[in-house]
């Protein structure tokens, strides 16, 4: 087990009204070494919040978020994130963007050599000196992946990384992520709202639901890659997951959220939700 959430609740408190929004309610999950874990669920159910907790960008309101046996206190290069939105610095070249994230304590040349290696891995070495605005959306996300790899993180956190790409490009990117994951023995937590994407990638699929955010069900997928989405087993699993998604309270219409009163607008109020 490389990371875990132990009875984690996350409440976002609005400083003006004092109202709290329960984004996660008593969520527990384990991420095993080498897992390709897909988090799936309707928008607003707390997928990004879960990922941000694992990354260390957010701290839990109650419960513990653990990484390699230690409680997570903040972001760390041990956990690389590929963000949903484009996250490259437009004022740096592709190479500089990747080299920026290489852990410190090495010379500039070494950092750039390492960055170059990662760019080769994602097929973008020809674009090392281009600016991000010269790249297509798919290429930008590939650079973001190269950057996460360059960090040499053991855990890759990917938040709907290909959500804004067209279907065809997304499939291609999915395959590449799979190739990198198989080749490098990383652990991946991959957020998506697409059942197909989860089915094509994951060794485990976790279904989340909202109001308040929690984990509903889990499926283990042993089918080897490349997976055939039209095989009977896959079709059946897809049906089952779709049904699970529909049962969830906010799958249709606007996402609803649970509100609570928070006593004493403390940073980390002790509370039962």
């Amino acid at each position: 087990m490389i990371a875990s959430l132990e009875n984690v609740s996350k409440v976002f408190t609005n400083p003006r009204t004092g109202k709290g929004l329960v984004a996660l309610n008593d969520v527990s999950m384990d991420v095993g070494e080498g897992d390709f874990l897909c988090l799936i669920g309707p928008s607003g159910c707390g997928k990004s919040t879960t990922l941000n907790l694992l990354a260390g960008f957010e701290l839990p309101t109650s419960g513990r978020v653990m990484f390699k046996g230690k409680e997570i206190a903040g972001p760390s290069p041990e956990r690389g994130v590929v963000f949903q939105e484009f996250s490259l610095y437009p004022w740096m070249t592709v190479m500089q963007n990747v080299a920026f994230s290489v852990s410190k304590g090495r010379t500039k040349e070494e950092r750039e050599a390492l960055a170059m290696k990662q760019l080769e891995l994602v097929g973008l070495s020809d674009f090392a000196h281009a600016r991000p605005n010269e790249l297509s959306g798919g290429m930008k996300q590939r650079v973001a992946i190269a950057r996460a790899l360059a960090m040499d993180a053991d855990l890759l956190l990917m938040d709907e990384p290909f959500g804004s790409l067209d279907e065809q490009t997304r499939r291609k990117m999915d395959n590449e992520v799979l190739r990198l994951w198989e080749g490098q023995g990383k652990t991946v937590v991959f957020v998506t709202h697409s059942i197909e994407e989860a089915l094509m990638l994951g060794t485990r699929i976790l279904l989340m639901s909202a109001s308040p955010g929690r984990i509903d069900r889990e499926w283990k997928v042993d089918t080897p890659w490349p997976r055939d989405p039209t095989s009977p087993g896959m079709v059946a699993l897809k049906k089952e997951i779709s049904r699970g998604l529909q049962v969830c309270s906010c799958a249709s219409g606007e996402p609803k959220a649970a509100f609570v009163e928070v006593q004493g607008a403390d940073d980390r109020p002790e509370m039962e939700v």
Binding site: A55, G56, F57, G74, P75, S76, P77, R79, G80, V81, F83, E85, S87, Y89, F100, S101, V102, S103, K104, R147, M151
Partner: peptide, 10 residues
């Protein structure tokens, strides 16, 4: 997100 990238990179 710009700050987050820098912070996650240590």
């Amino acid at each position: 997100i710009y700050s987050r990238v820098a912070l996650m990179s240590g």
